[in-house]
Amino acid sequence: MPTILLLTLSNVFMTIAWYWHLKGGMSKPLPLVIGISWSIALFEYCLAVPANRIGYAHGWSAGQLKVTQEVIALLVFGAFAVAVLGEPLTWRHAGAFACLVGAVAFLFVGR
């Protein structure tokens, strides 16, 4: 469970770092946006690295960690896209999510 929690928090920071400037920050100079994004991403790394180490130490493979992170990233991004950017989710988002959940299932089944 700490792995899932840390991966979720790290994805929140990374989504903010990558996409915050799309809403209201497009007029800011690109070097400034990059600097701010890197500052935010530092917190993401402080959470992602321990999440992966903890998960790996508890028997998760690197592949399991990666596809789990991707599912979490899609959930976090979906929420961010709707709540912050005001973008609607479509059936394509649901399809992509289903495919990623399938990838997780393939890597965890029989483990």
Rank of each mutant, 00 (worst) to 15 (best):
I72G: 01
F77I: 12
W20P: 06
A73E: 08
F77E: 07
T3D: 03
E70A: 12
K23S: 07
L89Q: 15
A83Q: 10
A17T: 08
A51S: 11
W91I: 13
T68W: 00
S39L: 13
G59N: 05
S39W: 09
G95N: 03
L7P: 03
A81Y: 00
A51H: 07
A73T: 15
W60C: 03
A57G: 15
A98C: 09
I54A: 07
P50C: 08
E87G: 00
S37P: 07
E44A: 09
V33Y: 03
I34D: 04
L85W: 05
I34C: 07
Q69R: 05
G78P: 07
L22D: 10
N11K: 02
I4M: 08
P50S: 09
V82A: 12
G35F: 07
F97D: 04
F106R: 11
W60F: 15
L30P: 10
T8M: 04
T68S: 08
E70D: 14
M14A: 12
A94W: 08
L89Y: 07
P31N: 09
S27Y: 09
P2W: 08
I4P: 02
P29I: 10
R111D: 14
F13T: 09
Q69T: 01
A103K: 02
G25E: 04
A103G: 15
Q64C: 04
S27Q: 13
M1W: 11
M26K: 13
T15M: 04
A98D: 05
L107R: 10
A105L: 15
S37L: 06
I72W: 04
G35R: 08
L85E: 14
H21I: 03
L30D: 14
I34H: 09
L65C: 05
I54G: 08
A83S: 14
H93K: 07
H21M: 07
P29K: 13
A98S: 11
C99F: 15
H58S: 13
S61W: 10
I36C: 00
I40F: 07
G35V: 02
L32P: 02
S27R: 11
L89P: 05
W18V: 12
F108S: 11
G102L: 02
A79H: 06
F43V: 04
L6W: 01
M26G: 11
T15P: 00
V101A: 15
F77D: 03
P31S: 04
G24L: 09
I4T: 14
R92E: 12
F43T: 00
L22N: 10
L65N: 01
L32A: 11
L30T: 15
K66P: 06
F80Q: 02
N52F: 12
L32S: 09
S61C: 01
G110R: 03
S27C: 06
A96N: 13
W91G: 09
C99E: 07
F43E: 02
G59E: 12
L5F: 00
I34P: 03
L89N: 05
T8E: 00
